[in-house]
């Protein structure tokens, strides 16, 4: 069976280990998942419903926000993810520097 790899248990996306077409069933950490659309090798697939504005979690950290509602099995990439790297880094740094020891 084709595979998707979930890196950390808390991730809500996995990475597909081969080119995947719509309707194909993938094995992911022992559970099965049906691809909603084509997902190319190395790209992310949603493991659960991710409502618009929710965090995309990979490596157990927030890597971006859903810019639209994402269904389980959907391809997750620039078309439905907002890159908030700047905000994450700047907000953290500002708060960290404001803290004294």
């Amino acid at each position: 069976m084709k595979k998707a790899i979930r890196i950390e248990p808390e991730d809500n996306v996995a990475v597909v280990a081969q080119d995947t077409s719509a309707g194909e069933t993938l094995d992911c950490a022992g559970a099965s998942l049906v691809a909603k659309g084509a997902v190319p090798l190395g790209h992310k697939i949603a493991l659960s419903r991710i409502p618009r504005g929710e965090k995309i979690v990979k490596y157990a950290v927030t890597i971006g926000l859903a810019s639209s509602d994402i269904a389980p099995g959907e391809h997750v990439h620039s078309h439905n993810v907002e890159d908030i790297t700047n905000r994450l880094c700047n907000e953290y740094e500002r708060a960290f520097r404001a803290r004294k020891g």
Binding site: V15, P40, L41, G42, H43, K44, I56, K58, Y59, V61, T62, I63, G64, V76, H77, S78, V81, D83, I84, T85, N86, L88
Partner: peptide, 26 residues
């Protein structure tokens, strides 16, 4: 951030800079 992730990274499935750099930090 203006040049990362690169077009090659995006084609390979990397969506954001946090995601790209976490691959290294891991």
């Amino acid at each position: 951030e203006e040049v990362n992730p690169t077009p090659g990274n995006k084609a390979g499935g990397i969506t954001t800079l946090v995601e790209k750099s976490m691959g290294n930090i891991k």
